[in-house]
Design a protein around this nucleic acid. Structure first.
Lengths: 183, 183, 183, 183
DNA sequence: GATGAATGAGGCTTCATTCAT
DNA sequence: AATGAATGAAGCCTCATTCAT
């Protein structure tokens, strides 16, 4: 996975993959039909933890919707900045168009589930009066957008201008929930 | 450029580039040192129109900040969905990490200028009282985020679920400027 | 053997040989030094029945030389068209030049013995007055030639034009023994 | 061609072919799609001279059918023993089953034409009274058989026992036309 | 300047052979 | 003795790059 993330699909050499995996080149072919199958299955495997994070469990009783989402985002951002999970997302953006199977899988397992979760949260927020804008439920993508941007930013522009993803997300939530009155 | 967009850097063959350009393969080398130079310079060239769009001219006097931004976004989204400008953005996301020169150029020419413009607009909006949240000026990325997401969405998930980018952006602006009172 | 016959030596995979033989790949190496040894010994084994056919026993007392040869040819052609024995001959033709040991063995065990037998039969035929042409004893190959041609024909051209090997051989014998007076 | 003849299709390395041809490996691919195409087209090219030999021109007026055939056979045997034309025939026998296109082409261009020519000659011989056996016209293969056997013999068994192909063919013709009365 | 045939390094893939279990 | 996972050498093929025309 590391190799694919840093080199992209085409530029990754199976020699290096094998070396990194500590096996001989031929061994790869005992487990995967070819380079494409290896790539797709690796991505699939790498995505599972993301899914698990999403389904991480019901929000604590009594928490506000904002707390729920903020907690979720905090976890997500932490994952993405400390592990290489974010790079996998970028890899999917990069190779998705040439690997429809990858894009499909990612949509099915992560995107659609994630958006459904967000939509539910938004609707709860609207019902509870925490969220004013009723149209937001139609575009749960908006909720996620800054987190995605942060992921991309880290791998492309971090060295030009660091970005405090958590703080950015907090401001974003302020837009949605209204600013928190700090005592 | 078309070839690089659809195939990515590594998978693009100079044979195809030459054919598409209507010249012989050798001719490419009269103008570019090698494949990398070709790629980088093509990207550079392709980015210029984006820059020009950004600098498209000062907002009409008397317009609200929201109108300015909405106009800008409308143009941007139109560009991105009808031309392949969006795919260039995706290409930069995909290849940026392996082509620092590309990422650098893009940051310098597009991102930093764009963000500066957004920040100025936000500050104007705050000064005029159109925008409540003062922290937004620190994160102009938030303003752009849904547009970026739309670009990526189109190339990866359009066939799973179409996305009305203009409408999404309108809802986003409602979050920032408050909902428009419709008559 | 089946694998070698249909694929040839180089294109035969030991994986397939093992599968077909119902053993694991490693097991082959308990019995044969390497692929070449396997091939040569298989050929050797496969040739034995041919040899036995040749030595099938002395002709019935009182039979004409023509009957002897015709009986022999009938057996040979039957063998060759109903079993895969003919393909082994073709395999030897195909691989012989690269496996001198195979050609040598085949010459020693089959060709020289077969020709000696043919020569003896021819000489008997000449002595009995059944065969006119005395020079034929120098070239017993002529006697066999149509049978060999039939073998090769079956594997190469059967689908273009079927060949009745028995009838052809009968005509051939007519040339040698004179046409049979049919009642 | 030399490489394919001595090694067979599978064992021939394109490296060696290129070296022998005095070009780089890649150059081969400018002219042939892949190794199979190279093989098939080489065979095709190599067969043409054989065809031309067959069509070498009408027999001299006033010649006997036997003279015609003997002349033809002499040319054929000379070709086959002094050039490598014979090995091509053996190569076709060897690889034909795995290259139907090769077998087809050979059948169409050489075998069917050759047999048609032989059949015509036989019928002429029958009409002129030179050939007694009327059934021979059904199996022109018989006429060719010893020549084919000679070809195969040369590459497999020449070193075990040399074979005088011309003399063998003469004896064969004696069977068909009756022994020549030597003065 | 333009061409495109030729090059050959490099990558994917196969498969005979080995060896720990 | 038998297994079959692992190995890595070797071969086919691609394609960026060169250069004689």
């Amino acid at each position: 996975m590391d190799e694919f993330i840093t080199q992209g699909f085409a530029a990754t050499r199976l020699d290096d993959v094998a070396k990194r995996a500590g096996v001989a080149k031929g061994t790869i072919y005992l487990h995967f039909k070819d380079k494409e199958a290896l790539f797709e299955e690796l991505i699939r495997t790498a995505i599972v933890p993301l899914v698990n994070r999403l389904a991480a469990g019901p929000p604590p009783v009594g928490a506000s919707v904002r707390d729920m989402i903020e907690g979720f985002a905090r976890t997500f951002i932490h994952e993405v900045t400390t592990t290489q999970r974010g790079d996998i997302v970028r890899l999917i953006v990069a190779e998705g168009p040439r690997f429809p199977a990858v894009a499909d899988f990612y949509y099915r397992e992560v995107v659609s589930k994630g958006l459904a979760g967000m939509r539910a949260a938004i609707q709860l927020g609207i019902a509870r009066g925490e969220i004013k804008n009723k149209d937001l439920a139609q575009f749960p993508q908006i909720l996620i957008a800054p987190a995605m941007i942060a992921v991309i930013w880290q791998s492309l522009f971090a060295r030009h201008a660091p970005l405090d993803a958590n703080e950015m997300f907090r401001v974003h939530l302020d837009l949605i929930f209204g600013e928190r009155r700090t005592a």
